[in-house]
C-alpha cells in the first residue's frame, strides 16, 4: 500500500518537473521533438534510479558512520558524474542513433538537478505517506521513489513534447516565440497537475 502511495505521489502529486522544479533545463532543451524527449526521459530514468541506489548506500555506509555528512554534496555529485560517463560509454556502444540524438544533453545529465535533487531528497527528507510516522525512506522505498519520480519526469516531458510539436506549427506573436510560449504552456500544465494535490 505504501509503495502505491509513493508511486502516485511521486508521479502526479509532487511531479518532479511541474511542482518541484527539478531538471527544468533539459526539459526545456530537448522537448522540441517527441523522439528526443522520449530518449532523454529514458536516460534520466536510468541515471536517477542508479544514482539514488549508489548514493543511498554511500551515505548510509560511508558518510554517516564516519561523521562526514558535510561531504554529502561533493560525494554525491562525483558519483553522479562518474555514473553518467558510464551510461554515455554504454549508450555509445549499444545505440549510436540515440547517442547522436541526445548529443550535448547526455553529459549535461550530470548537471541535471533532478538527479542530485532526488539523491539528496531521499537521504534527508522525512516522508509521511498514508499518515505514517515521519521517517526516512528505507532502501526499497528509496528505489521505488526514484523510479516513480523519474517516470513522472518522463510523463511530463513526453506530454509537453507532444504539445510543443503542435505549438511549432502555430502562429505565435513574435515576442512569444520559442521559450516564452513554452513556459506559459508548462504553467497551464502545472495548473492541471495541481488538481492531483491532496489525493495522497
Amino acid at each position: 500500500m505504501e509503495y502505491l502511495l509513493i508511486i502516485i505521489s511521486a508521479i502526479f502529486v509532487n511531479n518532479i518537473l511541474l511542482s518541484q522544479f527539478l531538471g527544468i533545463c533539459p526539459f526545456l532543451g530537448v522537448s522540441n521533438k517527441l523522439s528526443t524527449a522520449t530518449g532523454m526521459s529514458g536516460a534520466v530514468c536510468f541515471v536517477i534510479t542508479l544514482a539514488t541506489i549508489v548514493t543511498y548506500l554511500i551515505n548510509k555506509y560511508l558518510l554517516l558512520p564516519f561523521g562526514l555528512g558535510f561531504l554529502q554534496t561533493i560525494a554525491f555529485i562525483l558519483v553522479i558524474a562518474a555514473l553518467v560517463q558510464i551510461v554515455e560509454i554504454v549508450l555509445k556502444k549499444i545505440s549510436p542513433s540515440l547517442y547522436q540524438a541526445l548529443g550535448i544533453f547526455l553529459p549535461l545529465i550530470t548537471t541535471n538537478c533532478a538527479v542530485l535533487g532526488v539523491a539528496i531528497t531521499v537521504v534527508t527528507k522525512e516522508f509521511t505517506y498514508g499518515g505514517a510516522e515521519p521517517h526516512l525512506l528505507n532502501m526499497g522505498e528509496a528505489i521505488v521513489y526514484a523510479l516513480a519520480t523519474s517516470v513522472g519526469y518522463g510523463i511530463a516531458m513526453i506530454l509537453f513534447a507532444g504539445l510543443r510539436e503542435h505549438l511549432a506549427g502555430n502562429q505565435v506573436p513574435e515576442a512569444f516565440k520559442g521559450l516564452p510560449i513554452a513556459l506559459i504552456t508548462v504553467g497551464i500544465m502545472a495548473m492541471a497537475f495541481l488538481g492531483f494535490s491532496g489525493i495522497v
Binding site: L18, S19, F21, E174, A175, F176, L179, P180, I181, A182, L183, I184, V186, G187, I188, A190, M191, F193, L194
Partner: peptide
C-alpha cells in the same frame, strides 16, 4: 494563490520573458 504555487512560477517567467523580448 496560483502565483505562489508552481504554475505561477512558469507563467510569470514566461510573461516576463515576453516583455523582455519586446
Amino acid at each position: 494563490l496560483a502565483f505562489v504555487m508552481a504554475p505561477g512560477a512558469f507563467l510569470v517567467l514566461g510573461y516576463l520573458m515576453v516583455l523582455f523580448n519586446k
